[in-house]
């Protein structure tokens, strides 16, 4: 696999966006996208966790699991490292950025079970990325996730006073918007390939 890491970075933001192309990480995407500021904070936290875990998981996979033939352990190992890493991030945010800590609330520890993060670690293994490619993929996916959630939050803020039918308010209209955004992003597909 000889793809330029920069290509992977760009691709994972736009053409292979975790949310809009793979539909991973939907729960916090829908729940924390009411305000641009909070969603930007969560996006940053997710990006940080993605970058960190993709590198750590890459190292563990390549230097521990593969040599011993324990690839089948990757699911549980990846989840353990992600959980520990999120715990660390939570501690740091709680200590140094308390306002963000309070506005993220329960969704900060829930990054642990954000599918996008496990997804990135698993994709990078399946696609046989190198360390640099994995790092680029992690950062790119994080930025892509942030882009998507901030864009969604911006749209939701705009339509806050729109006369939405009762049955569609909240999650309903959010899913429709997400679908439209995904359609828009399909326009970019095919520009670069990364697998």
């Amino acid at each position: 696999m000889d793809i330029n890491p920069m290509t992977i970075l760009i691709a994972s933001i736009f053409t292979n966006n975790m949310i809009l192309a793979n539909f991973l990480g939907m729960c916090s995407f829908i729940a924390v996208s009411k305000e641009i500021k909070t969603s930007l904070g969560l996006g940053q936290a997710v990006t940080f966790v993605l970058t960190g875990t993709s590198v750590i998981n890459y190292l563990i996979y390549t230097y521990l699991l593969e040599p011993f033939g324990l690839e089948y352990l990757r699911f549980i190992v990846f989840i353990i490292t992600i959980a520990a890493f999120v715990q660390l991030v939570e501690m740091i945010i709680e200590r140094y950025v308390p306002t963000l800590y309070y506005s993220l609330g329960i969704f900060l520890p829930l990054i642990t079970v954000n599918c996008a993060i496990l997804g990135v670690s698993l994709f990078m293994v399946i696609r046989e990325y190198t360390l640099l490619q994995s790092l680029a993929f992690g950062i790119g996916s994080g930025l892509g996730w942030t882009l998507a959630i901030v864009a969604l939050a911006a749209i939701r803020q705009k339509i806050k006073n729109a006369p939405i039918p009762k049955g569609l308010q909240g999650a309903g209209v959010t899913l429709i918007i997400t679908g439209l955004m995904a359609l828009a992003f399909i326009g970019l597909s095919g520009v670069v390939t990364i697998q």
Binding site: I60, L70, L73
Partner: peptide
């Protein structure tokens, strides 16, 4: 080895 590695991590 499985046990060792998981425990180690």
């Amino acid at each position: 080895t499985t046990i060792l590695i998981i425990t180690g991590i």
